Simulated assay, not measured.
Amino acid sequence: MIKTYHKTTTIKAEQFDEAKWQAIYNDSHNPEERNIEARKFGIDHYHGYFIIPTCEGDMRIHDGDWIATGINGEHWPIADDIFMKTYAELPVIPTVIAEYISAVKNGETDLEDINAVEAASGVIEYDQASHIEAEWIQQHGDEFARAWLDGYQVEAQHDTRTD
């Protein structure tokens, strides 16, 4: 019987720009420096294209492909069209919301054994978070749910001081 599955691991990925890497290989006069910069790649000198070492062996990488990095540091190429159908960038949330999600999931609040929906309503109904957190969750319900379930990136802090 066929079952349906979803991916549960977060990956890091960058899009491959062949012109950029070709310039690194061609412009670097120091082979040692070139190897440090492009340690993920090799060049098939016979065919003249980039390859990436993977767990399954060397694979050709095309301009526009995505280079995925797994949880063990392994790399593999993913064609752009497949990548766009398979992966979505994690939501970016404020630090205070990330801290709240962490606190609730780690049992550091009065709310026990709850899921994402109960956490969102709990923060609003029981004042388990500040007004700022509750307001953000109300205005960004989809991002909050995705962050709770899939993981998140924390919004970059901007230094607003004037010296």
Rank of each mutant, 00 (worst) to 15 (best):
82 I>A: 05
97 I>G: 09
134 A>H: 00
67 I>C: 10
109 T>H: 10
123 V>N: 13
95 T>N: 10
78 I>N: 02
92 V>R: 04
102 S>V: 08
66 W>V: 01
84 M>A: 07
69 T>M: 09
76 W>Q: 05
130 S>R: 08
75 H>Q: 06
99 E>P: 04
130 S>K: 09
126 Y>P: 05
106 N>I: 04
108 E>F: 08
99 E>T: 15
71 I>A: 10
86 T>Y: 05
113 D>V: 03
125 E>V: 06
111 L>T: 10
139 Q>N: 15
88 A>F: 11
112 E>Y: 13
74 E>V: 05
97 I>E: 11
94 P>T: 15
82 I>C: 04
78 I>V: 14
114 I>V: 14
68 A>S: 01
126 Y>V: 12
124 I>C: 08
106 N>W: 05
89 E>F: 03
80 D>M: 01
114 I>T: 14
82 I>G: 02
133 E>L: 03
106 N>P: 00
115 N>G: 14
118 E>K: 13
69 T>A: 08
91 P>H: 10
134 A>I: 08
97 I>N: 02
108 E>A: 12
106 N>T: 06
130 S>C: 05
112 E>T: 14
130 S>A: 10
108 E>S: 04
138 Q>A: 14
128 Q>E: 11
86 T>K: 12
99 E>Y: 11
127 D>P: 01
98 A>H: 12
72 N>D: 12
75 H>Y: 15
63 D>I: 01
94 P>W: 15
105 K>E: 05
97 I>C: 07
76 W>L: 09
87 Y>R: 11
120 A>H: 10
113 D>L: 03
59 M>H: 07
111 L>A: 15
94 P>S: 12
106 N>L: 03
95 T>L: 15
108 E>D: 06
93 I>H: 02
113 D>K: 05
61 I>M: 01
119 A>T: 14
89 E>K: 14
139 Q>S: 08
122 G>V: 04
107 G>I: 06
75 H>I: 15
112 E>V: 10
134 A>G: 13
104 V>Y: 05
129 A>L: 03
134 A>L: 01
78 I>Y: 04
64 G>F: 10
